[in-house]
């Protein structure tokens, strides 16, 4: 249970209860929908991208603490970043939650709160759904994103 308490720590619960950048984004020029059919979680990510930079981001959806907090933390992390930087961040975040590399080597700041997901294989998709959806929005993939 102590490992789990490390995951369900205050930062996760705070972002779950009060997600940042939550809601529509009126001047968005990119968006995508994500869906995890396993649990029914849905997320929609809106972006305002100009000159290769994520100027603004917002998301909507309903999900568990891990997926909601991950979307919220992601929105904070990528806002203001260059698109290439944001993509790189996703790669490193993905490596962290899938356990490819040890925690601490990533310098991911608040995103490291989700490192414990690596020990919960069935929940990795919860943590990555928003990120996959974010990437699809960047690519403006017209297909809905599914974690399956």
């Amino acid at each position: 249970m102590s490992d789990l308490r490390q995951l369900y720590q205050e930062i996760i619960l705070d972002h779950y209860r009060s997600p940042r950048n939550f809601g529509p984004l009126e001047d968005a020029n990119h968006d995508a929908c994500g869906h995890n059919p396993l649990c029914g979680d849905r997320v929609q990510v809106f972006l305002k991208v100009e000159d290769g930079k994520v100027h603004d981001i917002a998301f909507e959806g309903a999900g568990c603490a891990i997926s909601t907090a991950s979307a919220s933390l992601m929105s904070e992390a990528v806002k203001g970043k260059d698109v290439d930087e944001a993509r790189d961040l996703f790669e490193r975040f993905h490596d962290m939650v899938t356990g490819v590399e040890d925690v601490g080597e990533h310098d991911l700041g608040k995103l490291e709160a989700l490192a414990g997901v690596r020990d919960l294989p069935v929940r990795i998709k919860c943590a990555t759904l928003a990120w996959h959806t974010f990437r699809a929005a960047l690519e403006q993939n017209p297909e809905s994103i599914s974690t399956e």
Partner: peptide, 15 residues
């Protein structure tokens, strides 16, 4: 109220 079923499932599993 306030807790998603997937979080409940994970926390119960750990018990």
């Amino acid at each position: 109220d306030g807790v998603h079923p997937h979080d409940i499932g994970t926390i119960l599993d750990h018990q």
